[in-house]
Design a protein around this nucleic acid. Structure first.
Lengths: 131, 131
DNA sequence: CGAATACCTGAACGACTGTTCAGGCGACAA
DNA sequence: TTGTCGCCTGAACAGTCGTTCAGGTATTCG
């Protein structure tokens, strides 16, 4: 796999009028690229946030902690579907729960989800400036 | 802008002997749950970040702007695969590009990706505290 | 005890995703 | 002009994802 030799001299600065070089002598710190393991972990986490119904579940839980049954009603899904999704959100530690008799009350687990939401919103609402 | 505001005012208190009700009278602000459209947009955006190879491409571009060919070498993928992924990253405005002769030099488009990365890292590296 | 409730889980099916393969287009050099 | 290079794109296939359906476990009540 990626055992490309990181020798070679210097890289053209971005935007510099450079490209006469043959450029098979790319000076690039290959070892500083995100490792496959770390990239995998990142992708798994963000992949969990890549489903609209999971966002609706999270937003409902942001309003108030709830039983599964009420959560299903709040987002308009079947209890089974919600339960499946909650398991996924649980494994990513995005939600927590407490048991109460035969009820299970879910809640958001920390603040990171709010920051992620805000950051993404800002990006999506950004004007379409070319760069 | 749209917000997920934590408001835990009127959740059924744990242990309330309520469940005789048919529970179609759940007191819950359904209209404040993330709309399907907004949830869809969120999911699309985060879904793009749900692939390890795209993260490696982004991390490589974070180190320096590059031609497609060099990018492919940097992350160990075929040029075709990289090109396909760049198109996806382009549509989400995560990367930009400038043409230079027959080369196309890609670069990161804004800072949001760094914040998202940091936020996710913090979450993933968090100790497994129960709550 | 048995029935009902709340929730969880495995299997299966349709839909989506990301890669490879083949070929296309435009820019540059001879 | 022809040939090569860098990049893009459509089709197709394997793999993954999220839902539904059916059934299971645990708790509560009569």
């Amino acid at each position: 796999m990626a055992d490309i030799t990181p020798d070679l001299s210097l890289a053209p600065p971005p935007g510099a009028p450079d490209s006469d070089c043959a450029c098979d002598r790319l000076d690039f710190p290959f070892d500083r690229v995100l490792s496959l393991e770390k990239a995998q972990r990142m992708a798994e986490f963000f992949g969990v946030l890549g489903d609209p119904n999971r966002w609706r579940i999270l937003s409902a839980l942001a309003l108030q902690s709830m039983r599964v049954r009420d959560l299903a009603a709040a987002v308009g899904m079947s209890e089974s579907a919600v339960s499946h999704q909650l398991r996924i959100l649980r494994t990513m530690r995005l939600v927590g729960y407490i048991k109460n008799g035969r009820n299970v009350i879910y809640s958001l687990k920390d603040q990171h989800i709010f920051n992620l939401y805000r950051e993404a919103s800002e990006h999506l609402d950004e004007p379409d400036d070319r760069r």
